[in-house]
Design a protein around this nucleic acid. Structure first.
Lengths: 139, 139
DNA sequence: TTGTGTGCAAATCTTTTGCAGGTTG
DNA sequence: CAACCTGCAAAAGATTTGCACACAA
């Protein structure tokens, strides 16, 4: 009974009819352990050390399944390919350090509330949103 | 002396050493007249009616020049290629109707202020930001 | 067993670039 | 005239897909 955080996802996935293969387990492990926001190629690199047969195509296919299942979030930042993060944490937005490339997370309930009000005024409800602050260290 | 809004851009560009060619004039006209948020291919299609020799490569090259000059903004929404809009209007963010694909604009000084405060707490100043609300009509 | 998932390679899609010739200021 | 632009076609980078085989449930 290892306290593997990927374990409960695994079961949840199986419950919705998604097969959990060796390759998917490897990717899930890498995703849950990632402290950063890796892109598909980087996830492939990392997961390969757990299962060296894993192909990049499968990484993409799996990521797309996991996104559909609500297990991962795809971040489409301004440059480069998509980056991914597990969706088990509370919702948050991102601050990107333009110089170092570092990605930080933040959350503002006040802003979210204002967003909802703005959307509501136009007769909309928000399905999801993105907010990214591209920043530089203050002098 | 036609009251062409592209005219003053044209001069501003020349002033910073950017050559205003036939092709660039066509693209500028299409951009300033666009009421929507076209992508490169669509801009190419429209500008071709003014200058049928215009190539897609030049559209991309010109858009990148115009972006560097601060004349256009590149929107990297979640799906598909980049979309563009002229930067002569006040700053705003976007609401996307997930069903129709329609893109609307909004601005909230309150939110912008909160964003600045959040960045400042981490020692950052915002260079630019993006906020997109992906919405559906309320029932 | 049977429907899913996978690796590989080829295909897409969007955007960029090398090169030789054309144009702007 | 010199520096800058352009069209074309090929290259690049990211992601998707067809196919025959493999495997989870």
């Amino acid at each position: 009974m290892k306290p593997d955080p990927a374990r409960k996802m695994t079961q949840a996935l199986r419950d919705t009819g998604v097969r959990v293969t060796r390759q998917r387990e490897a990717l899930l492990k890498v995703l849950t352990e990632a402290q950063d926001h890796p892109d598909a190629a980087e996830l492939h690199r990392r997961a390969r050390e757990l299962d060296d047969s894993l192909s990049l195509a499968t990484v993409y296919r799996t990521l797309s399944v996991l996104e559909r299942e609500g297990v991962v979030l795809r971040l489409a930042l301004e440059n480069g390919g998509a980056r991914y993060e597990v969706a088990n944490t509370a919702h948050h937005d991102h601050i990107i350090d333009l110089d170092s490339g570092e990605i930080m997370e933040f959350h503002s309930e006040k802003i979210e509330q204002l967003q909802r009000e703005i959307a509501a005024e136009l007769g909309y409800e928000i399905v999801h949103h993105r907010m990214e602050l591209y920043c530089r260290k203050k002098p």
